[in-house]
């Protein structure tokens, strides 16, 4: 690792101020950032640790939606969202491994927007709102491509508000070495509409499968997806699977998610 200083602010305002320094970068759980630093793929001069900021932590119902603080670990979401939003708790419970879940945070995951991460699918399918230190961003506007989000330099994800669907399911085809999904689908059924988000598949990162949403909105059954396909040419192709294979998995994962709900 290149050398850097670590600052440990106690509140969001101080963190934002610290992030105004040149080449400063926020550090949340560090489960992606620390390996990145070890590989010398990042060279911050200052890391601003968000771990000591209590206002970034918590899982609670607010006005009918589930609010999760940006600094809340996957293990906490797994436990504390189990009753209010079981599909999201189940997603959190399958990220990485137990030790990773005790450090990694929802805000870190969403800020990084890894094209194979779990939380982006949960947030996008739920129609969540990303709260930052300066504004609120709808999930539909937030995810802007592989490792790219609407966040500005030094902007911190302070919380995420999840509308709770009538029913939902996260179906993950795990890549066992990394424990990321090879492809995963989050299907959320609301009273008036259905949202489907796919992670692990597209070169553009997480995306909504709108044709599937329309079909499921008309008839909520796995058979409604018959004949729907995605273009493998736009999918990630690597040693773990070709684009065509991933495109196929999108359909399989979405069908299984629907079958788990009905």
């Amino acid at each position: 690792m290149y050398d850097f200083e670590i600052e440990r602010p106690g509140n969001v305002a101080d963190a934002v101020k610290a992030l105004g320094q040149e080449d400063a970068q926020p550090l949340s759980g560090g489960q992606t950032l620390i390996p990145t630093l070890k590989a010398r793929l990042a060279m911050p001069s200052v890391l601003v640790s968000l771990a000591g900021i209590d206002e970034l932590k918590g899982v609670e119902m607010r006005d009918g939606a589930l609010w999760i603080g940006g600094g809340t670990t996957h293990a906490t979401v797994m436990r504390e969202a189990a009753d209010s939003y079981p599909a999201l708790a189940s997603l959190a419970a399958r990220i990485g491994d137990p030790a990773v879940r005790n450090r990694g945070t929802i805000g870190g995951s969403l800020a990084n927007n890894d094209p194979s991460a779990c939380y982006p699918a949960g947030a996008l399918a739920s129609g969540a709102t990303i709260e930052t230190d300066r504004r609120e961003i709808a999930a539909d506007d937030y995810f802007q491509g592989m490792f790219t989000t609407a966040l500005e330099e030094g902007e911190i994800v302070t919380g995420v508000r999840f509308p709770i669907p009538q029913a939902a399911h996260y179906e993950k085809f795990i890549q066992p070495a990394s424990r990321f999904p090879l492809v995963a689908a989050f299907v959320a059924r609301f009273d008036s509409h259905v949202r489907v988000a796919i992670t692990g598949a597209s070169n553009e990162g997480v995306f909504r499968w709108r044709e599937a949403e329309a079909a499921l909105g008309a008839t909520f059954a796995a058979s409604a997806l018959d004949g729907l396909t995605l273009d493998g040419g736009e999918m990630i192709s690597d040693l773990h699977g070709s684009g065509a294979y991933r495109a196929h998995l999108c359909g399989v994962m979405t069908r299984r998610a629907v079958q788990s709900i009905v």
């Binding site: 550090l27 560090g30 489960q31 620390i34 390996p35 030790a99 005790n102 450090r103």
Partner: peptide, 9 residues
């Protein structure tokens, strides 16, 4: 809590 000491400062 169990954590990986190689991935925490």
């Amino acid at each position: 809590n169990a954590v990986k000491a190689c991935t925490m400062f």
